[in-house]
């Protein structure tokens, strides 16, 4: 379809070409990436649409050891969003490589983003070293920002020195692009991003969820067994956009913007703030076809705002 369009005068590039972006040296067909923790390993979504239309996706946060996560209830609702305290439930990197990645490969044929969490520098490095050997892993997204685990995870995301240390530890064991996923639960987000960039990060993604809670009026007790959790959904979009803007003005490496994106217009707005690509999280849980709809809506939304190619927007 591209050929016909290109032959016309003053050509409007084919939709496929208009959406392409480059993320740390790898071309994506479009900037839409389901966010870790909302897309599993892709299988549930592959039941209802061809997930190969995605730019890529970030698979379920993986740790060195298997983790059950927090007790239930793990989920609460809030206006225009939700709160989760899953607590990084995952089968551990060994089983992810043995069982999940072969299944993923059956339904997704592009490079995938591996999302990694840890509780020590050694653990981050060991998990990343194992995933580095997986040919389908195109990027390592290192989560230093999960608000729902106790005894580690979060402090890497709130102290720039620690964030830099994780970055160096992971960079030492992989040649794949390393993207640090930042927590919004800090005073100076730009300082965090800068520390990661100076330590060798190839990209930054943000924001992870904002800490929040709900109390049940009937029981007068917190809804979540973990008491607190991470807020996501459209309600966090303006906060996320502001932080992406600040980070994009502080670093030169590519930034993936996320936080409450649920429409093609949200994607454009996030990219106008400077993001190279976007991740879509909670929207997938409410509407499993959300990412397909966003990708399909993008060309018309770009037409409305006079955008020829999406990579013109922010990006690097």
């Amino acid at each position: 379809m591209g050929g016909v369009t290109r032959e016309k005068e003053a050509p409007r590039p084919a939709d496929a070409d208009r959406l392409r972006v480059n993320l740390c040296g790898t071309e994506l067909d479009n900037p839409v990436i389901p966010a870790s923790g909302t897309f599993g390993f892709g299988l549930e979504f592959a039941e209802i649409y061809d997930i190969n239309i995605l730019g890529t996706f970030s698979f379920k946060g993986t740790t060195r050891e298997p983790r059950f996560g927090n007790p239930t209830p793990r989920i609460a609702e809030c206006p225009a969003g939700m709160i989760n305290a899953v607590g990084l439930q995952n089968p551990g990197v060994g089983q992810v490589i043995r069982e999940e990645l072969p299944r993923l490969k059956q339904v997704f044929h592009k490079p995938v983003m591996a999302n990694v969490s840890g509780f020590s520098l050694e653990e981050y490095a060991e998990t990343c070293a194992l995933l580095d050997r997986e040919p389908q892993v195109g990027w390592l997204e290192v989560n230093i920002s999960c608000p729902n685990v106790h005894g580690g995870g979060m402090s890497f995301g709130t102290d720039p020195k620690q964030a830099a240390a994780v970055t160096r530890a992971v960079k030492a064991v992989t040649r794949k692009p390393v993207i640090l996923k930042l927590s919004p639960n800090v005073t100076d987000i730009a300082e965090m991003a800068l520390a990661c960039e100076e330590a060798g990060a190839d990209g930054i993604s943000l924001i992870n969820t904002l800490q929040g809670m709900r109390i049940d009026l009937k029981t007068r007790k917190p809804v979540l067994a973990n008491l607190m959790g991470g807020v996501s959904g459209p309600c966090v979009f303006p906060v996320a956009l502001r932080m992406v803007w600040q980070v994009c003005r502080a670093v030169r490496i590519p930034v993936i913007g996320m936080g409450g994106i649920s429409s093609a217009e949200d994607v454009l707005e996030m990219m106008m703030a400077g993001a190279t690509a976007v991740e879509v999280g909670a929207a997938n849980l409410r509407d499993p076809l959300a990412c397909r709809r966003i990708i399909e809506d993008l060309p018309a939304a770009m037409d409305r705002y006079g955008i020829r190619n999406i990579r013109e927007l922010g990006g690097h």
């Binding site: 897309f39 549930e44 239930t72 793990r74 989920i75 609460a76 899953v86 849980l285 499993p288």
Partner: peptide, 22 residues
């Protein structure tokens, strides 16, 4: 019954322990 996020297996919001694993 558990409080669910997605209802279709993606978010791990409703996982319980069982004798055959989570």
């Amino acid at each position: 019954e558990e409080r669910m996020g997605c209802g279709f297996g993606a978010c791990m919001g409703c996982t319980v322990r069982t004798k055959s694993g989570p």
